[in-house]
Simulated assay, not measured.
Amino acid sequence: MMMKSKLTTLCYIEKDNQYLMLHRVSKKNDVNKGKWIGVGGKFEENESPEECLLREVKEETGLTLTAYRFRGIVTFCFEGYPSEYMCLYTADGFQGELAGCDEGTLKWVDKDKMESLNMWKGDFIFFDLIRKDAPFFSLKLCYDRDYYLYQAVLDGKELDIGET
């Protein structure tokens, strides 16, 4: 049986040399449980990537984005699951007050402290691309059933990801 791919957005909101990060600790049966990620989520019917981004950020943070940039598309492959295609954004303009999130704890984290967070190994790859202000990119990240990153392909070229 063919499984349907997921379409999602993820955004790293920037302020004062920090990113707003979500520590996923609230949901049961969450593949991201215990991990630090940006904010975002699944597309709803007939949504564009930007509409999904704006809705998800508002739902998870209470903030309304006023300036954002589409940075790349990330293809996630997990053995035994359908592929996920994630539209990756950064944002540096927003209005409103930070609200609580039912998926975990929101926290502003210094950009130079990001590498100390418990994140997916592949997230560090696209964080580096964002940090270097890389042009729009396509990144494919493949994980096995034990969540070991075994392949990363950037713009069609395999990356040397070393040992985890």
Score class of each variant (00 low, 15 high):
Met1Trp: 11
Met1Pro: 10
Met3Thr: 08
Lys4Arg: 12
Ser5Tyr: 09
Leu7Arg: 11
Leu7Ala: 09
Thr8Ala: 13
Thr8Tyr: 00
Thr9Ile: 11
Thr9Leu: 06
Cys11His: 11
Ile13Cys: 01
Ile13Gly: 08
Ile13Tyr: 00
Lys15Thr: 09
Asp16Trp: 00
Asp16Pro: 06
Tyr19Asn: 10
Tyr19Pro: 11
Leu20Phe: 08
Leu22Ser: 09
His23Trp: 11
His23Pro: 03
Arg24Glu: 00
Arg24Thr: 06
Ser26Asn: 15
Lys27Met: 14
Lys27Trp: 04
Lys28Gly: 07
Asp30Thr: 10
Val31Arg: 08
Gly34Phe: 05
Gly34Pro: 04
Ile37Lys: 10
Gly38His: 07
Val39Glu: 01
Gly41Phe: 00
Lys42Gly: 10
Lys42His: 08
Phe43Val: 07
Phe43Met: 02
Asn46His: 12
Glu47Phe: 10
Glu50Val: 05
Leu54Trp: 05
Glu56Gln: 11
Leu63Gln: 02
Leu65Trp: 03
Thr66His: 01
Thr66Ala: 02
Thr66Lys: 04
Tyr68Glu: 03
Tyr68Trp: 15
Tyr68Gly: 01
Phe70His: 15
Gly72Glu: 01
Gly72Leu: 04
Gly72Asn: 05
Ile73Asn: 05
Ile73Glu: 13
Val74Ala: 04
Cys77Leu: 06
Glu79Arg: 05
Gly80Pro: 12
Cys87Ala: 13
Cys87Phe: 14
Cys87Thr: 07
Leu88Trp: 07
Tyr89Arg: 00
Thr90Val: 08
Thr90Asn: 05
Phe94Met: 01
Gly96Gln: 13
Gly96Cys: 11
Glu103Gly: 05
Glu103Asn: 10
Glu103Phe: 08
Leu106Gly: 03
Leu106Pro: 01
Leu106Cys: 00
Lys107Asn: 09
Val109Lys: 05
Asp110Ile: 00
Lys113Ala: 14
Met114Leu: 15
Met114Phe: 14
Met114Asp: 11
Glu115Tyr: 14
Glu115Trp: 13
Ser116Thr: 15
Leu117Ala: 08
Leu117Glu: 03
Met119Asn: 03
Trp120Glu: 07
Trp120Asp: 10
Ile125Arg: 00
Ile125Gln: 01
Ile125Pro: 01
Phe127Ser: 10
Lys132Arg: 14
Asp133Tyr: 00
Phe136Thr: 07
Leu139Ala: 03
Asp144Met: 03
Arg145Glu: 15
Arg145Phe: 05
Asp146Glu: 15
Leu149Gly: 04
Tyr150Leu: 07
Val153Glu: 15
Leu154Tyr: 10
Leu154His: 10
Gly156Asp: 04
Gly156Ser: 12
Glu158Gly: 03
Glu158Phe: 06
Leu159Tyr: 11
Leu159Phe: 07
Ile161Thr: 03
Gly162Leu: 11
Glu163Ala: 12
